[in-house]
Structure formats: C-alpha cells, structure tokens
Amino acid sequence: MPKPILLLNCGSSSIKYQMIDADTEAVMAVGLVQKVGDPTPGTIDHEVDGETFHDETYFPSHTEAIAAVVKMFDTHGPDIVDAVAVGHRTVHGGTDFNSTTVINQSVINKLVELSGLAPLHNPPGIAGIRAAREILPDVPHVAIFDTAFFAELPAAAHTYAIDRELARKYQIRRYGFHGTSHQYVSGQAAEFLGRDISELKQIVCHLGNGASVSAIDGGHPIETSMGLTPLQGLVMGTRSGDVDPGLHAYLGREMKLSVSEVDTLLNKRSGMFGLTGKTDMRDIDQLIAAGNEDAKLGMDVYVHRLVGYIGNYIAQLGGIDAITFTAGVGENAANVRKMVVDKLSYFGAVLDDEVNSVRSKQPRRISTPESKIEILVIPTNEELAMVRETIKAIGG
C-alpha cells in the first residue's frame, strides 16, 4: 500500500509540487503552477505516468492555485485523499526552528514574525501553507526549513561582528540556506564512497541559479557561504553574492536609491545577469565562444569567488577528503567544474577530463585515481530529502 507525501514549494508567483511514495521513494506525480496572483491567465502542468496535463486559468491567490492542484489530482490522479502528509519547503526558520516541524497555528504565527528575515520567500510560503491547510485539513502539514541543517554552525562561523545586543534582539546571524540539499548530498557522497560520514571532511558546492557552498566535518556543517539572507556568498544567477556592505549607502547617496531599491538591484539584477546579461551557463558559454569579453569576465568572477570559498573551507576543515558538485550548474556544467578543480591542483586535486565531460544523471567520481581529493558529482534530490524529513516528523 503506497504512503504518498505531497510536497509543496510555494514561491511568490509559482507553486512547484510533487507526490512521492514514502515507502518506495517513487515519484507519483509532479507539477508546476505559474502566474499566481497575476492579472493574466496562469498555467498549471501536471505530469503523471509519463503524461502531462495542461490547463490555463486565473489564480488570484495561492488558495485558488492550491485548489487547481487538488483538481488536477482528482481528475488525472493519483488520488490526493491518499496523501498521509503535506511537506512544505520553508526558506527561513530564524533561531526558532532548527528542525523539521509539524505545523499548527502557533508555528504559522511565528513564521509571520520571521518574515522580515526573508521577505521575498517566507510570505508566499506562508500563503501556501494556509491555502493547503484549508483545502487539505485532515492530514498533518510539515515545514521543512532551508536553514535547519546549519542551525548548529559554530558561534565563530555564524556570528557577525556587529553590536551584540542589536544582533540578539533582531536575530541577526548567518543562517545558511539550501540546507536540505547540502545534508542530502553530503550523505549520498559518503554512501557513494563507501565510508562512514563521521570520518569525512567534505565540501559541497550547490551551484544553481541560487548557489552556496558548505564545509561539513563528520556530517556536521562548520561553515556555509549564505548568511542572514540568501544574498551573501557566491556569485549567482541574479544575486551579487558578497559585496562591500557600504555599497547600500554609496548607491543611496550617489543614485538616490532607497534601501529597498538597492536590495532589488543586488537580488534581481546582479550576479551573472548583471555581469553578462544572461543567467543560463549554456548561453554564457556561447557568448564566451563568440569572443564576448563581458561573458568571459563574468565566468572568471564566478570561478574566482567559488575557489576562494573552497580554499577557505579546506583550511577551516583542516584538510579535505571530498568535494562534491550538485544542482543545475554543478551537475551539468563540465567547464565550470574543470576551471574550479584545475585551480585546486596545489591541494592534489586531479580531474579526469574524459569522465568529467560525460553528461549523466548518476552519482559519479570525476577525479583520477591519483587525485588526493575525491571529486564527485552527486545529483541533489531535495524532494526526496523532504519526504524523509516529513515522515520523520510525523512519526513514521
């Protein structure tokens, strides 16, 4: 008898969803709702048994969007009433939530209080939770936090050098994100290598449109690149990553921009988009091949920042056993992996260029036998990790 778990990832204008059987870990359905809250018609695509069903209608709010998801399940299957729980991806848990949590009204109230820490992410997530609980009230709902895996970062790693009383009052610290992926991939890397995770010093590079890197010692994270918000750290698709904090004041003075306008600039008009005009690495590769100097510089900045973090983390770990690439860029951009690993030759990392160039959806080793560091590519599966967390939270 299947044990279906419905997973919801609610953005401001979209909802990604999957239903996965917790027993077999097989994907039963997957879908995407777009243009939630938009005045123009939105779309919903629902895939089950290899067939995709499409519909277009208006989604004034997340309530109507979730209702459309339920209708797709009712019409095309699988039966949503068989779901034993709903797992919600929740970006920011602040200092209040350091593990997956069964949702009740007090949890929702606390998430609302924390919205200031993730104003772009938490409010739509809360809207999705409310809508799903209203439409599916008879099953437990669970919040899986992006920040939870990094909740126990060492104090020296998570503390900012600002007024300590102000930091305590407003919960200002480095939280880290993509925690579900970093936890899953580090566990899979240990399994792939046939070693106990408690023995391993690992660096995980989660490289997608959002990107982060973590240092994991014996299964416990000791560093990660993202901070109070997902803006800190690596160069990303549209996010700047690290910049001088004084940039906000400078642009405010020189361009008469508000803090909100600078925040939008750094989150949505920077990163690879700001440097090259593109966010897809394939498009950037084409520009580089055509001799575009901006694209070449953008790629150099991207790699420079990532290598800098990796070198820092090798020092913080006191050595390194494995470096793993994951997520869209990490799994598919062979040239990015090569540029990074070639710069790590001082540490004894040696890439197998032939193996690295082969596209695959399977976990694989891309270093040579003589390499002193295991270089791996492990596809992330945040949805599967969310299912496991959901089952754990509801007691099996």
Rank of each mutant, 00 (worst) to 15 (best):
D300L: 10
E254N: 08
Y170R: 15
I80W: 11
P230S: 14
H88R: 13
K392F: 04
H220R: 15
T326K: 05
S14H: 15
H92F: 12
D23R: 03
V204N: 07
F73R: 00
N332L: 02
C205P: 01
R195I: 10
G77H: 04
G241C: 05
G328R: 04
A385D: 08
V303M: 09
A161W: 03
G298M: 01
S106D: 14
R133M: 14
M281C: 10
A157H: 02
T324Y: 02
S106T: 15
L32A: 02
E382V: 07
G277E: 03
L193P: 00
L257Q: 06
H121R: 12
S115D: 07
D283S: 13
D217G: 04
L7A: 13
V27G: 00
L234K: 04
E64R: 11
V70A: 13
L8Y: 02
Y170C: 10
I129T: 11
D244I: 01
S214H: 08
A148W: 00
E354N: 06
Y170I: 13
A29E: 06
I314S: 09
A155H: 13
Y160H: 06
N98I: 09
T224Q: 12
P369H: 04
I366W: 02
V112N: 11
A289L: 10
H62D: 04
D217V: 05
P78S: 01
A68P: 06
I203N: 04
C205L: 15
M281T: 12
S186H: 05
K256C: 08
A155I: 12
G218T: 10
V204D: 04
R133F: 06
L200H: 08
A333Q: 06
D74A: 13
R388A: 02
L153Y: 01
Y160A: 09
T390A: 10
T147E: 05
I203V: 15
D285R: 14
G116S: 13
G42C: 04
S357A: 15
L297N: 06
T101D: 09
P140S: 09
F325P: 01
A157D: 04
R164C: 05
N335V: 13
K3Y: 03
Y175I: 12
L111Y: 12
H88D: 10
T390S: 06
I394A: 05
T238A: 07
V303T: 06
T368L: 01
N332G: 00
A190V: 04
I15S: 03
T52A: 05
R337Y: 02
H76L: 01
A190Q: 09
G328I: 12
D283I: 07
K71E: 15
T43G: 05
K361L: 03
H304C: 05
H88E: 09
Y175K: 13
H121G: 11
Q18E: 12
I378W: 01
T95R: 14
N104S: 13
D49S: 01
A189G: 02
A68V: 11
P124N: 11
I216E: 02
H158Y: 14
